[in-house]
Structures are given as structure tokens and as C-alpha cells.
Amino acid sequence: MIKTKPQTLIVDNKYCPGCGHGVINRLVAEVLEELGVADQTIGAVAVGCACLMIDTFGIDWIQAQHGRAAAVAAIKRCRPDRTVLTYQGDGDALAIGFSETMYAAIRNENITVIFVNNTNFGMTGGQMAPTTLPGQKTTTSPYGRDCAVTGNPLKAIDMLKTLDIAYAARGAVTTAAEIAKTKRYIRNAFEAQLNGEGYSFVEVLSPCPTNWGMPPLAAKERVASTIQEYYPVGEFVKRGEKRHD
């Protein structure tokens, strides 16, 4: 079966070869179109690779300040008839944007957060992010992340599970099977919003070949062999029920 390109993807993506963002963009576009809400969706982005979507992903966008996408997404309160999402990287959402991300969840805002975890600041040169793994080398941790100095990597879903939210899941874009699961998680997240259930959050583990200094296939394999060990995939909150799978 040949699948046609989603109409929401109005221009080819601008990401680095082998980057997972392109796949994730397509999954979000497919889900919005399948749910029939693409032309009624508002997206909020701040900085980083997500900003490239403004030119290529054909929905209405609001440009937020660094880390403030979740705060800007509170436009859902003014336009409850719209589907509202944020699309953010790990540096944006969990570093300077940590407060906004968490307080949107604490308030159980009826929005959907698409959170891309590639364990570094992707657009600005591969610096250490809150999600950088122990011992991982980055441009700002050239000898490897020392958790005795920096603390341990931040697991956002572990914190979100303690809150009264609608949905939380973590997927990956490593294999066809994992991509299919991730699409299902994204669909579940948007359905939670459409049903008025509250805050939904999907973390997607993504390769970053450019900043990891790896060929695309090796970067994808690193996600499966190393990153998923630290950040297991699955659904963790669904319909407000806490899960352990």
C-alpha cells in the first residue's frame, strides 16, 4: 500500500539527514488529518528545531519565547474550539521551559504536548540537556556527563505520573513497529484533548546524527540499544489511570 503525503506537510522538512523530527512531524500530521482537525489546530513553538515547522507544517502557529510554548498554549482557554499543541525539544521544554511545562500539567490544561527527546540541545550545537545520559559526551560535557556534578537526567514522565493529567506516553522512531506505536500514542493524546480530559504528553525518543557524530543508522541503533534502556517506552497515564507498562 502506498500512502500519500499528508496535505498538512506543505513543504519538505528542513531537518538534518537521519533526524527523527521528520518522522514525528509526519505522524502528527497524519493523526490531525485522520481526526479531521488539521484545519482547526493551533501550534505553539519556542526555539530550536521545532521552529522549522513554521514554514513546513501547514497549521496556525504562535511563536513563543524560549521555553514558553506551554504557557502560550493556554490560548486553548480563549479558543476551546481549537485543537492546541506544543512541539518542543528536550532543551526547550525541560531546561528554561521546565516551569511552564510542569505548571501546564499541574493545571491540567487541555492541550497536547509533543516532546522530542534527543538527549541534547539539537539546533544550537549539541550542548548538554536535562535529558543527556550519564557519561554522554556533548559540546558542554566533553568528558561525559558527570551526574555527581549535574544531577541525574530528568525523566519528565516520572514527574507527570504524580499529577492529575489525562495522558502520558513515550515512544520512539527506530523501527516500523515502534513508529506505529508512537503514532497510536499521539492519536490517544489528541483524542484525550478532543474529549476534554485535560493535559496529554507524548515524549518521542529521536536520533540526532549530526550532534552525536554518527551515521543515521548508527544513531537510530543507539536509541534502541542505549536510550530506551534509560527511557523505557510505553503508556504511563491513560484516562487518568496510572500505568506501569
Rank of each mutant, 00 (worst) to 15 (best):
residue 81 D to S: 14
residue 102 M to C: 10
residue 76 K to C: 02
residue 78 C to Q: 12
residue 188 N to F: 07
residue 119 T to W: 02
residue 60 D to F: 09
residue 2 I to E: 11
residue 68 R to F: 07
residue 97 G to C: 11
residue 197 E to R: 15
residue 52 L to R: 14
residue 26 R to V: 01
residue 195 N to D: 15
residue 98 F to N: 07
residue 185 Y to H: 15
residue 236 F to M: 00
residue 130 P to I: 04
residue 112 T to K: 05
residue 118 N to T: 07
residue 73 A to G: 11
residue 238 K to L: 11
residue 163 L to A: 09
residue 165 I to P: 06
residue 36 G to M: 06
residue 57 F to C: 02
residue 4 T to R: 11
residue 130 P to N: 06
residue 165 I to K: 06
residue 155 K to S: 10
residue 78 C to D: 08
residue 87 Y to P: 10
residue 241 E to G: 00
residue 190 F to M: 11
residue 72 V to G: 01
residue 126 G to A: 09
residue 90 D to L: 12
residue 8 T to G: 03
residue 134 P to I: 01
residue 191 E to I: 13
residue 65 Q to Y: 10
residue 64 A to C: 13
residue 113 V to K: 10
residue 98 F to I: 10
residue 106 I to H: 15
residue 105 A to S: 13
residue 189 A to F: 13
residue 112 T to P: 01
residue 15 Y to V: 01
residue 32 L to Y: 06
residue 228 Q to P: 00
residue 175 T to W: 04
residue 7 Q to F: 03
residue 231 Y to L: 09
residue 71 A to G: 13
residue 242 K to S: 08
residue 119 T to D: 08
residue 221 E to P: 00
residue 18 G to D: 04
residue 230 Y to D: 02
residue 178 E to Q: 15
residue 48 G to W: 04
residue 34 E to T: 02
residue 60 D to N: 12
residue 216 P to H: 05
residue 245 D to R: 11
residue 13 N to F: 05
residue 173 V to H: 06
residue 232 P to K: 02
residue 78 C to M: 12
residue 2 I to Y: 07
residue 100 E to N: 14
residue 85 L to T: 08
residue 184 R to M: 13
residue 94 L to N: 14
residue 116 V to S: 05
residue 58 G to P: 02
residue 32 L to H: 02
residue 95 A to W: 05
residue 119 T to C: 14
residue 35 L to R: 09
residue 96 I to L: 14
residue 14 K to F: 05
residue 48 G to M: 04
residue 219 A to G: 12
residue 175 T to H: 07
residue 30 E to I: 12
residue 87 Y to A: 06
residue 106 I to V: 15
residue 241 E to K: 15
residue 135 G to R: 09
residue 41 T to V: 11
residue 19 C to G: 06
residue 227 I to C: 02
residue 180 A to W: 03
residue 5 K to P: 00
residue 213 G to P: 03
residue 232 P to Q: 05
residue 229 E to M: 08
residue 168 A to M: 10
residue 151 G to Y: 08
residue 164 D to L: 03
residue 44 A to F: 03
residue 21 H to G: 05
residue 13 N to H: 15
residue 194 L to Y: 07
residue 103 Y to L: 14
residue 77 R to V: 05
